[in-house]
């Protein structure tokens, strides 16, 4: 069964609790093990934050969830990542399909050098979307509304997306991801290039999106993690410089009464 088939089955039934499950995942770049034995379950329609110091493998884990690591030559994964109960690293799974269902927003806003309209429509078009001009207009509007940027750009849909401000560009990228109707949205430090006001807007947007999407966010900003996320995973490098999951649980618990000493030290700003 392909992911699509499973996906339609499960969404038809009552939703499973977990959107994504990592089981004993090891990630290698060539012979270097970047991530060691990570197992965690991402809950549906919640925001999960990955935190940890630089180089601890949190971005690598994030990118493994929609197989973006495949694009890096020499990268390899052991273990399983389940999406609707299906291992997305099975040979019969096409990464292209995985990426359609698990969208991604990058650290630096990266709109295409095309109009805002075409930025949104690119995803649907390449994924075989068919419809009238009116339907396309509606799709664009819905995606832009979903990313809370419609009011700002509705009069300049045919101007280049690259002419927007950084924060607007990032919301445009989120809208672009929404346009292909993903179930999960991965965000790799989406606010690190933005000013505080734009950051606030993105955070509000994330809380809004949580109603319909599962969001996983990598962040260096601990306040951000505590503000927006429901669950937090804390990663740390071990002696071999391989990242591993130290602690994972409800955000409140991680930030108030962590079980692990290292988590506590990191949270309280003693290192990292």
């Amino acid at each position: 069964m392909t992911v699509a088939e499973i996906s339609s089955v499960t969404t038809a039934q009552t939703n499973g609790r977990y959107a994504v499950e990592l089981q004993n995942t090891h990630i290698y770049y060539g012979s270097f093990r970047a991530v060691k034995d990570v197992s965690l379950q991402i809950e549906r329609q919640r925001i999960t934050a990955f935190i940890g110091p630089s180089g601890c493998g949190k971005s690598t884990v994030l990118r493994a969830i929609n197989r973006m690591n495949d694009l890096i030559p020499g990268s390899r994964l052991e273990g399983r990542i389940l999406f609707h109960g299906k291992n997305i690293y099975d040979p019969d799974v096409d990464p292209v399909e995985v990426r359609r269902r698990i969208g991604m927003v990058f650290q630096k806003p990266n709109p295409f050098p095309k109009s805002i309209y075409d930025n949104i429509m690119f995803g649907p078009r390449i994924n075989g979307w068919r419809g009238t001009k009116a339907q396309a207009d509606e799709l664009v509007e819905r995606a832009l509304r979903g990313a809370a940027i419609w009011d700002e750009v509705k009069d300049k849909l045919h101007q280049p997306g690259t002419a927007l401000s950084g924060g607007q560009q990032q919301r445009l990228c989120i809208a672009r991801a929404l346009a292909v109707q993903p179930e999960v949205i991965l965000m790799d430090e989406p606010c690190s290039a933005l000013d505080p006001i734009s950051t606030l807007k993105i955070e509000e947007l994330m809380l809004e999106l949580r109603r319909n999407y599962t969001i996983i966010i990598v962040t260096h900003n601990m306040q951000q993690a505590s503000r927006v996320s429901d669950y937090t995973a804390f990663f740390l490098m071990d002696a071999d410089r391989a990242g591993q999951l130290v602690e994972y649980g409800p955000t409140e618990q991680i930030f108030t009464s962590p079980n692990d000493k290292r988590t506590e030290d990191y949270i309280s700003g003693r290192f990292g």
Binding site: R99, R100, G103, N110, F112, I126, R176
Partner: peptide, 19 residues
Amino acid sequence: SIRQASYGLGATKWQTVWH
């Protein structure tokens, strides 16, 4: 970053190259 954005939306390699 442009390539990644394209792949991230589910584009194939050819679509990324062409578009």
